[in-house]
Each structure stands twice: as C-alpha cells, then as structure tokens.
Design a protein around this nucleic acid. Structure first.
Lengths: 264, 264
DNA sequence: CAGTGGTCTAGACCACGCC
DNA sequence: GCGTGGTCTAGACCACTGA
C-alpha cells in the first residue's frame, strides 16, 4: 500500500515533512479515499518517516497535491487526531505527538495480547458445552431464560504457566461451535473475528479478591493470593450481546494496561 | 439550551420521533451548530423523549427542517454515533441504541465517581509539598531530573471510610498550589479543570497485590488483603504530562467499571 | 423500487496563533 | 498581516436495505 520515494522532487521547508511525495490514492479502490490517506500517514508515523514533532503539510496544500477536496483530506487527518497520533492546533498546524500514548488494547482478548508479546499462549479447555441459560446468564446476554447458550471455561497459559481462568457465555447460534482442539490454538475473539462477528463496544469491570483454595490450585497460586477479576460484556454495532465473560487473573503475572481518550 | 414543545404541529410517521420540532439552533451562538444539535439530541435521549429503539429523522429531512446543510447535521449525528448513543445503518436509518453501554468513566477522577454516586467523598491530605524530582518521577513526568514537582499523597474517604491511598506528582508550575483545606473538599481533577487544564488522554495500568502492614492499617484492611493498584499518566492534547499517579484501592470496596469502544 | 447513510466536491468565512 | 485549522454550504453520486 505504501510507496516510498527517496528523493522529493522539490524539497519542502526544513522541519516540514511533505507527505504528498509519499502518498498515493487509488480512486478505483473500494477503500474510501480518506481511509487510504489516513492509513498511509499512520504507516509513516509508525515507521518513523514522520517523527514525533514533525509537522504535516497543511490541509489545503495536501488536498491540492493529491487532487482531492479539502474535506476529504481533513477527514483523514481527523482520524489520526482521534486516535491521538497527531495534534492539531489552529493557526499552527498539525504535528505528530511527542509523547505517544500507547495504542489502547481496546476490545482485544488476552490471547491476542499474549501473542503480541510473544508469550506463547496456550489453552486448556475445561468446559465446552451448550446448555440452557440460567437467570443471571440470560440477563447478561439479553436473551430469554433457558435459551440455549454456549458455555466455555478455559485456563489460559503463557509459556506453559497458568495465567488466567476464563468463563464465557455466548449465544449458541452466533458461530458454529468449535471443537476443543480449535480452542486450544486460537483465542475466542480470533474465532469470532474469523466468523465475521465484529465487536464494537464493551462494558468492563475490573476488581480484585483473594483466591479460594480451588482457584489457587488451578492457577498455581497459594490460597488467599490476590487475583484480578474481570467481567466483560461485548456488543456488536447494533447493540446485540456477543459475549459475557468472567475472568480471573493471577495478579502476580498480569495487569491491565490501556489508554483512555477524551473527556467524554 | 433545550426547549420542549409539547405538541408537534404536524404528527410525524408512527414510531419515528421528529426531532425538528424540539430542536432550535442559534446562529449567533459561539457554540458550533453541529454541537448544538448533538447536545439537544443527547438531552432527548437522556430524558427518554428519544426512547431506545426510536428512529431519528433522517439526515436530509432534519437538515431541511433546521435550515442547515446535510454535512452539518451529519456531523452532529456522527458525534452521537461515536459516543455509542445511536446506531447508524445504511439503507435503514439511525436508531437510539437498545442496550446502552454505560458512559465510560474515561479520564474521570475517583472523587468525581464517588460524587456522582452520592458517596460523600472526603480526603485526608498526608503530603502536599514541592520537591525536586527523582529519576523515576522525572521520567514519568517527562521533565529533567531535580526539576521541582508537586507531590501529593492523600487518603480518599467515602462515607467517612477509607477507600484508597493516592500518590500523585504534577509539574509544579501547572496550577497555583492549593492549601490542604482546598484539597479536602475538591478532587484533583476538579481543581485542574477549574484552572483550565484539559486532560485529553491517559495511559493506565491496573493490577492487584497483597496489602503490606502499613497499607492495611491506613486503609482499614488486614495485612495480606487484596488491593487494586492503578498507575496513571495523564496528558494534555499537546502531549504534555499533566499528572502521574500511583493509587491503591481496597478491593473489597472498589472496582473499575468502564466502557470500551471501537476495535482500534 | 424508494429511502437511507457513506462518501466526495469546490468552494466560503471565521477564530486563533504567531510575527 | 498571514497562515492555520474550525466550521459551514449546496449540491452530487454511490452502496446498501427493505418492501
């Protein structure tokens, strides 16, 4: 997608990186133009071609150079501003942020997180059944009581050591039920994404408590050790519940890192 | 800002609430038009006038009724969609979400949270000094070592019971240093907002550990009790560090609830 | 098929920050 | 003053949905 042009035909002012030279738009692509621009600018920032503090070419120039209207270019840059990658200041310009806030691990799964950290994630499947929903689960999934739901209970391993115990409930008709062997090599969110289920939002609650004897044994901790608890309900864009889960993490081995944005 | 008109002059189609009848825009106001619209629509949703599932008037009609262009109206509705209050579907329309995800407690302070819950928050100030930054604090605040920083240590109370111990570091020149008595009645974020400091993003890490003897005593727990730990760095829109804090919460009395949005 | 949101254009004026 | 982003207009065509 990104094309590098080592020498700009006309050097721009010192300190101002000229994105026009490295951005190409494809009018025949189904991908929106503003998205094409944003993607390429983001790549430039990720790769360091656009270093922190670098000023972007201004909207009007960039639009002219790309042969696009200003609103389109503006929409692209706004995407980056919303992500916190650049800062816009009226009368000044747009700059790549200095102190980049780590990309929020929003709506990712533990499996993804561990994969990204090269922690060799593994899974032990304890329960993988379809059963009628009890009252609490029915309320959480927003379905009628005794509706068939998919119940999943797993232990997550990293480098062969237990990290978490995860209990999940999902609508039974959401995706074809995978066998245990599939669940052992793929995260739940990975499976959902693969089946075209797209998460859009989630409600999450994080707390802590002391480990019971059984929990301690399962996770390789001692009784009374602090555990992180996480309860999460995930939704599609249409507001349908995708998944309800209650997870238990060893506090000695895991913490939740994330980025927040905007004052609401 | 919002004006209620009890009787619509011309009843709209059944099931479709006609926002045009209740929305007024003021072209002379310094508040952007799209923001005026979004605010009033949000009020209608909050108040229940726009019930979950209700369809909004479409963009073109609404624009015509308000005497505005479609992009302006669209920007307003997009704000609500970004907040997760409405769902937009091409070929269908815009609906108020059924399963409303609780407003994320993004970048709020514990004091705000407790105030909102009517928990009668209080504060005991343990430390309130300006001192030279050590290596770790200097790195966290992104300032030179031995720069003067404001150090704050407090115990947060709710209904006169201790809930958390909070340690914060801030650039000393950010706001005039308040006396202890001010800190006892106002949250830190409240003070910062009042001084015009606007938080834009934060990096946060939540974990858990067992209470030491001193911590247990301070918080009214027993030694070894599980505590939630939170470490946070807050930034302005320009990427400057506003505050670095390490907090300790009684797990028996507090949990972090928040909403996540978008798949990143 | 008609209706909806998604995208895009080619301009315009304004408010703000800096010089 | 001048350049910047912030806002706004009045159209346009397209893709998708549902009847």
């Amino acid at each position: 997608m990104r094309v590098t042009t080592p020498n700009s035909p006309r050097p721009s002012s010192p300190g101002i990186w000229d994105p026009g030279a490295e951005i190409l738009v494809d009018h025949s692509s189904p991908m929106p133009l503003y998205f094409q621009i944003a993607t390429q600018l983001e790549s430039a920032i990720d790769s360091g071609a656009l270093a922190p503090g670098a000023r972007l070419d201004n909207e009007v120039h960039l639009a002219g150079r790309l042969g696009l209207s200003r609103p389109t270019v503006r929409q692209a840059i706004q995407m980056l501003a919303d992500k916190g990658l650049v800062v816009r200041k009226r009368g000044v310009g747009t700059q790549v942020v200095h102190n980049r806030v780590k990309r929020g691990v929003e709506l990712t799964s533990l499996f993804d997180d561990l994969s990204a950290l090269d922690q060799r994630p593994g899974t032990r499947v304890l329960v993988n059944v379809v059963e009628p929903a009890g009252a609490a689960v029915a309320r959480a999934l927003d379905v009628a009581e005794r509706t068939e739901v998919w119940r999943l209970e797993r232990v997550r391993l990293a480098r062969s050591e237990p990290i978490a115990r995860m209990c999940n409930y999902l609508p039974a008709d959401l995706i074809p039920l995978p066998g245990d062997e599939v669940l052992e090599t793929r995260g739940l969110y990975q499976l959902l994404r693969g089946a075209g289920v797209r998460m859009h939002a989630a409600r999450q609650s994080i707390g802590a408590r002391a480990a019971s004897r059984a929990e301690a044994e399962l996770l390789g901790e001692s009784e009374g050790a602090p555990l992180l608890t996480m309860e999460r309900t995930s939704y599609t864009a249409a507001g349908q519940v995708v998944e309800y889960g209650t997870h238990l993490y060893r506090a000695s081995r895991y913490s939740f890192d994330f980025a927040l944005r905007g004052t609401g």
